[in-house]
Design a protein around this nucleic acid. Structure first.
Lengths: 157, 157
DNA sequence: CGCCAATGGTTATATTGTAACATTTAGATT
DNA sequence: AATCTAAATGTTACAATATAACCATTGGCG
């Protein structure tokens, strides 16, 4: 159930999901890309809670009893969603999480709880700034920044 | 050959490797851990250059013609080396890189060139500071920070 | 309608990583 | 030195993650 996966404090998770879907519709429309049924379906699964979701978990939930979904189906949808900024990939977990603010440009900074799996996207501009400054010194052209902080969230302590 | 893998500008890479091995010996001695032949061998392979090395690449180079090495052999050695702080795992690449300063405590911050694969470990205390401050606000206990910056290095531009 | 580019299905396989148990080895102890 | 033991390594088997390549379908367009 969604209840056991939603994290942090209690909240109306249905609202989160709706928000994400509406956001996604808008964003895809703006970009002239199609948010197909499959992609919406996958996005929904990613938004099952606020923790990271594995590709193969989505896969399982996608298939009917008779015919199971195949990996490329999910990976393609996930790639699309990533390109649109609708989901982030958490490299340290090999998993995915929905982006709550796909409009805002950001780099992907996360607090990840080892205990409960909650993923909290953060926005610390100082990090990006410091990275960019150093990169500039080094003559390095930044394309993507990933910041993943593993630890224990407030609730789990 | 090592030459084609060493990155950034020309340098005496043999010196890097020696440095790393000496460092490793000292560190293990201090910690009362054994730097066995196998572990040294793996560390050497990780230090083949300054780019990230994949576990299965090490694996191939480990085995004799007759009997190939098996995955757990490499993964165990890598885990040991990570625990000692002698190598870092690059989550975004599923690969490993030697740590040039295993004594200094740090969080693992890297500039990774997509072109040539060069991995440049950086030390930007402002990042750790900013992360820690935010984590504190959130009541989040930090255990590990990962910062991986993908882009293009000076040479490749 | 008929075309075509985008999307999704399917098969097969590559890559990455681990569990579980057996064997060997290095160092401590007698 | 012989013996013991914990650490290290070997081995088998498999789990988990991901992609290549090719085919079928579909949705929008002239």
């Amino acid at each position: 159930m969604a209840a056991e996966r939603t994290t942090a404090r209690r909240h109306d998770h249905h609202h989160c999901v709706q928000q994400a879907l509406v956001s996604a519709e808008g964003l895809c429309a703006d970009n002239g890309r199609r948010l197909t049924a499959l992609r919406r379906r996958v996005l929904r699964e990613v938004w099952r809670g606020h923790d990271a979701v594995k590709a193969y978990d989505i896969l399982e939930r996608l298939g009917d009893a008779e015919r199971a979904a195949k990996p490329p189906t999910v990976y393609r949808a996930l790639q699309f969603l990533q390109e649109q900024g609708l989901v982030h990939r958490l490299e340290s977990l090999n998993a995915f999480v929905g982006c709550a603010e796909p409009h805002r440009s950001h780099q992907g900074q996360f607090l990840i709880c080892r205990q409960c799996g909650a993923v909290h996207e953060i926005h610390v501009p100082q990090i990006a700034t410091a990275v960019n400054r150093l990169a500039q010194q080094e003559g390095f052209k930044v394309e993507r920044q990933m910041v993943e902080v593993l630890g224990t969230c407030q609730r789990c302590r």
